[in-house]
Each structure stands twice: as structure tokens, then as C-alpha cells.
Design a protein around this nucleic acid. Structure first.
Length: 403
DNA sequence: TCTGGGGTCCTAGGACCC
DNA sequence: TCTGGGGTCCTAGGACCC
């Protein structure tokens, strides 16, 4: 049976949401109507463009580039800081509205959803009608706009939502692929990134159609699994289901670009503790444990190094994760000047009843009780209310969004 | 020019075992 | 003494996405 899929994509999400939240708080100016961007704090060396207004886009400003570049392109650009709590609020409002159409919703990111309406189209209705209705209702009831892609699989719905923006509904059915998708530059294809683009161009592949018409075996030979995927996408082939159920994370990480480069291991360890604390806190919130601890650094010359360690027994203990991270960092840093420091845990598994209640020894039982006590204080009084990362100055450097 | 932070998945090479 | 091939696990790095 042909599936009925929508991809709902919020236009300039971070900027639009910031705009309407400011308006809701009495601000007169709608920042969607001026050259504006949402960006990180330049003083903290996080000065990249996270979202841009339609007018800012017309100046050639791109998401992900330094704010410094954006100013060169448009000296009058206004820069605003975003707020994740605000994003989450509007993202949830959108999700609630979509739930009126189907319970088969995959939250692909904070500002994108896939919806499967296969079993929710009544006789006499079309998928396109539903898409138009959603588009209109979001604008009128929620105050921001979305693009909606209409198709029979996720890939085509996603490609369709990316066509003309903003506030539009586009279809991309099988019989439209040749006319609507094949002429697009190959860079527009989902999963063709910065590194693959020049390789494809060197092969004479300039458009999605060019790739679609190549031999699939050739693409597999050159790019392996990625080649197979790209070829299928270029041909509009995608069998992936809309996953509506909650999926546990496969890894949890926390990293920070430091306001200044740091080379002293003692100072780095203090930050490492704060990072480990946050990672293990999130791990425990999901009732997960980790088999692998990973530490990553980025040096002042933007080289990235990482070390990881497989543990004998999975853990969710702050102390254990920190101790292992410390050891990894020691082997990693070699007096290098560190720009970014990160901790990540991998190979996560669910704690079963046995593991929650039984302990190897008294020491780890005590440790677990301490973690739990701190966790519940954090729950009640906020993440930063209690911390083992001793010095408060670290919490001035690292701002935790997780509360 | 000055370059975030959160993820997922894949690959290559080495260690180790049979 | 000098020799093989396959499977699994681990690590480091890199690609992609939003």
C-alpha cells in the first residue's frame, strides 16, 4: 500500500521562534522583517550563525558560518541570542497540532517532523489537502510558518519541503521526480555533504538526475554504502518508516569551546569534571549505563583528537566516568593548547532491575546513592544548584541548558 | 576573515582467537 | 621454522544531519 507521508519543516526556526517570543513579551520589532540572525556569543568564541531571516539570506549569509563573515556581507545585520527553552516550547506546540492529524509522528529534529497519514485520510480527502490545512493552521494558530513536503516516502517529502520557501506546500510524487528533482544541483540531495560534493562533480555529476542515471554498482564501488544510499535517494527510493515511538539515545556527549585556549592539565580537568557530571546526569535520567567513555579535544589549530576506553563493567557513575575521562585526557593532551574539550559516553544499555538494586561492593553502592541524592537536588532546585565541579567559575564558563 | 554543539553511522587497521 | 584465512572486537577518525 502506498504510504502517505508529510515532512513539516519550520521556516528559519530559531529566528522565527525568537521573533514571536519577543513579540509576545511586548517587543515592537518583528526581527523576521529585518536583516537579522541568531548567533552564539562571539566573546565566548561561539560566534556562528545558527539561523537567519529571509532578508539576511538575501545578503548571502549562510547558517554555520562565522558571524564575522555575516557582518562583512551585511554591516547592518542585527544579531540575537537564542534560547533553547523557547525553541522547545514552540516545537511542542507544533507537535501537539500535528497530533490532531496522526499519531505516527517522527520528531526528526527540534524543527522538523515526519508524519505518516496513511491511515488518516478519509474518502474524498487528499494528502495535499491535509498539508495545506496544516500549513494554514500553523500560521494562523501558532504564529510562525512551515513548509510542508507531500510524498509517498520520507526522502521525497523531505526534498519537497526544501523547494521554494517560506510558507509553502510542495508535492513530490513518483511521476514528478524527473521534472522537479532531477534538474536540481547535486548539492541539494540529502546526504551529499561538503566532502562528497567535489568528488561527485569530478565524476561529471552536476545534478541529481546525473547521479540517478549512473550505474548503481559504480557508485557502490566508489562510495560503498554511502554510494548505494545516494544513488537510491537520487532515484527517489526510500523504504524507511516513520518512527513515532521514543528512541533511547545511542550516545550522550557534552562539549565546550573554551573562552580562551587552555593548556594546563589541572584547569582542563576541572572542566572535564563539569562535563562528566552533566553527561552522567543525563545518562542516569534515562536509566542507561555506558560501556565506553570518550574524550575529545580540538586544538587551537582546529585539529581534532579523541581517545576512548572500553570499560569492563558498564557504568553511570559520575566518579567513574570522570576518572576514566581524566586518564584519557592525560594521554591525549600532551601540552597541547586546547580550544574545545568534550566528554562522550557510547555503547549505552538499559539498566535492568538487577543492576539497579544489586552492587558489586559497598563502595559503588555508596557512590550510586551519592549520585542519586545529587540528581534529586538538581531535579528540585535546578541543574546548577549543586555541583561537584567545585569552583563556581566553571559554571560561569559552562552554561547548562539541561534543566 | 574565523570557524557551536548535539547526534548517528561507517570505515580502516590492529589485536586476538581459532 | 615459517606459514593461512576468517571472524570479532576495539580504536581513531571522518562523513553526514540539524
Amino acid at each position: 500500500m502506498e504510504r502517505q507521508i508529510l515532512h513539516v519543516d519550520v521556516n528559519n526556526a530559531f529566528l522565527s521562534w525568537t521573533a514571536i517570543d519577543r513579540l509576545a513579551h511586548g517587543e515592537e520589532l518583528d526581527i523576521r522583517t529585518i536583516p537579522a540572525i541568531i548567533g552564539g556569543d562571539e566573546a565566548q568564541r561561539k560566534g556562528v550563525v545558527l539561523a537567519k531571516s529571509t532578508i539576511a539570506k538575501q545578503f548571502g549569509i549562510k547558517t554555520g558560518e562565522p558571524i564575522y563573515f555575516a557582518r562583512k556581507k551585511c554591516p547592518d545585520i542585527k544579531v540575537y541570542q537564542g534560547d533553547f527553552k523557547v525553541y522547545r516550547k514552540y516545537s511542542n506546540a507544533l507537535y501537539q497540532l500535528l497530533l490532531e492529524y496522526t499519531d505516527q509522528i517522527e520528531r526528526f529534529s527540534i524543527d522538523e517532523c515526519f508524519c505518516d497519514l496513511t491511515h488518516f485520510i478519509r474518502p474524498g480527502e487528499t494528502l495535499f489537502d491535509k498539508a495545506k490545512e496544516i500549513n494554514k493552521r500553523v500560521r494562523e494558530e501558532l504564529g510562525f510558518t512551515v513548509n510542508v513536503g507531500v510524498a509517498h516516502n520520507k526522502l521525497l517529502a523531505k526534498m519537497a519541503s526544501d523547494f521554494q520557501k517560506p510558507d509553502r506546500v510542495h508535492t513530490l510524487f513518483e511521476n514528478e521526480i524527473e521534472a522537479k528533482m532531477f534538474p536540481l544541483p547535486i548539492s541539494e540531495l540529502f546526504m551529499v555533504g561538503r566532502k562528497t560534493l567535489p568528488k561527485l562533480e569530478r565524476l561529471g555529476i552536476k545534478t541529481i538526475g546525473d547521479l540517478a542515471k549512473r550505474d548503481q554498482k559504480e557508485m557502490i564501488k566508489l562510495f560503498g554504502k554511502h554510494g548505494k544510499l545516494m544513488w537510491e535517494y537520487a532515484n527517489g527510493i526510500d523504504e524507511e518508516e516513520v518512527i513515532s515511538k521514543f528512541v533511547l539515545p545511542k550516545c550522550i556527549g557534552n562539549s565546550i569551546t573554551l573562552p580562551q585556549d587552555i593548556y594546563q592539565i589541572e584547569k582542563l580537568n576541572e572542566i572535564l569534571l563539569a562535563l562528566s557530571e552533566q553527561v552522567s546526569y543525563r545518562l542516569r535520567k534515562y536509566d542507561l549505563q555506558a560501556k565506553v567513555v570518550n574524550v575529545q579535544i580540538k586544538t587551537s589549530d582546529f585539529l581534532v583528537y579523541s581517545h576512548q576506553k572500553s570499560l569492563d563493567i558498564p557504568t553511570s557513575s559520575t566518579k567513574e566516568i570522570y576518572e576514566n575521562a581524566k586518564e584519557l585526557l592525560l594521554n591525549l593532551h600532551k601540552n597541547r593548547s586546547v580550544r574545545l574539550l568534550g566528554v562522550r559516553v557510547d555503547r549505552l544499555s538499559e539498566k535492568n532491575e538487577m543492576q539497579i538494586s544489586l552492587f558489586d561492593n559497598e563502595k559503588s553502592e555508596k557512590q550510586e546513592k551519592l549520585d542519586k541524592a545529587i540528581d534529586s537536588l538538581k531535579e528540585r532546585f535546578g541543574y546548577n544548584s549543586v555541583t561537584r565541579a567545585g569552583k563556581m567559575k566553571i559554571n560561569n564558563i559552562i552554561r547548562f541548558k539541561e534543566e
